[in-house]
Amino acid sequence: MPPTTAELVHDRNLGDLLKHRDVVLEGCEAPQRTARVVLADMLGTDEARTDDAMLVASELIANAIQHAGGAVSFRIEVYELGSALGVVDRASDTGALPVSPSNSSTEPTDVAVSGRGLFIVQRLANTWSVEQTENGKIVIAVLTQAGSR
């Protein structure tokens, strides 16, 4: 079983925290672009790492917009061996997120028209989770550097 986000982050499997930034997205005209700019600044020149993180962040923000009334903020934590990305929204129903996201509809041979966001996150991130916050929830994805699992 893969480690949980809490295990990776709080049990220091990612090493020391190097950088942390919270970005307000509420009221932002282009929240996904804003998150990508912050990620590029914080993750630097590792193109593969940055590309995966940008796609994961974009999917998490899109899900918050589509299913939770919008993204409130974006959190990025850069560790020695990876990063943790979180998107906060105001919806409090953590049970609405599928435990095992899928890329198909009810028929195994059909591809779903929507609902692939968390499937993409699950494929790119080492682990992801959802946690209650004071005013909603945060969906967190952890991406480790190659070879640091």
Rank of each mutant, 00 (worst) to 15 (best):
Q122D: 15
G115R: 02
W128Q: 04
G70M: 08
R49A: 10
P2F: 10
V78W: 02
G136L: 00
S129A: 15
D51R: 14
V139N: 04
V23L: 12
T4M: 11
E59T: 09
A30G: 01
G136V: 00
T106D: 14
D41N: 09
A125R: 11
S148H: 05
L143D: 05
P108Q: 05
S92G: 14
L18P: 00
A91R: 08
Q145G: 07
L55D: 10
A96Q: 14
V9K: 12
Q122F: 00
E131R: 09
D51W: 06
R21K: 15
A30M: 07
V99Q: 10
H10P: 00
M54G: 10
Q132K: 13
Q145K: 15
E131H: 11
P101F: 03
L81Q: 07
S58I: 01
E26A: 15
S105Q: 07
T133G: 05
R12Q: 14
L17N: 01
L8H: 05
E47H: 08
A96F: 12
E7C: 02
S129E: 14
E134Q: 13
V72N: 05
V142M: 06
K137G: 04
S105V: 00
E77V: 00
A146D: 11
M42W: 01
I138P: 00
G70K: 09
E26Q: 13
A146W: 02
T127N: 01
S102N: 01
S58N: 15
A91S: 13
E80H: 07
D52G: 01
E80S: 08
G27E: 12
A62L: 13
T109I: 12
S114W: 00
K137L: 12
S102E: 07
G86N: 06
A125K: 08
T109S: 14
N103C: 05
A6E: 10
S129V: 03
V9A: 10
W128L: 10
L124K: 11
G115M: 01
A53S: 14
P98T: 04
S58F: 04
F119A: 15
E59A: 11
G82L: 08
G82T: 06
V113D: 04
A91F: 06
A57Q: 09
R116N: 11
S129K: 01
V111Q: 09
S102P: 00
S148T: 14
A96K: 13
P98S: 08
L25D: 08
T127H: 04
A35L: 09
V87R: 03
T106M: 09
A125T: 04
K19A: 08
A35E: 02
V72H: 07
D110A: 13
I76M: 11
S83G: 07
N135F: 03
L118H: 04
L18N: 08
L118S: 03
E29Q: 15
Y79K: 02
F74C: 07
L14R: 02
V37S: 11
R90P: 02
D51H: 06
L143G: 01
R12S: 10
T5R: 03
A125Y: 11
S58T: 13
A91V: 02
D46V: 02
P3Q: 12
P31Y: 07
V99K: 13
L39G: 07
A64E: 01
A57D: 05
G69S: 08
M54A: 13
Q145M: 11
S104L: 05
P2G: 02
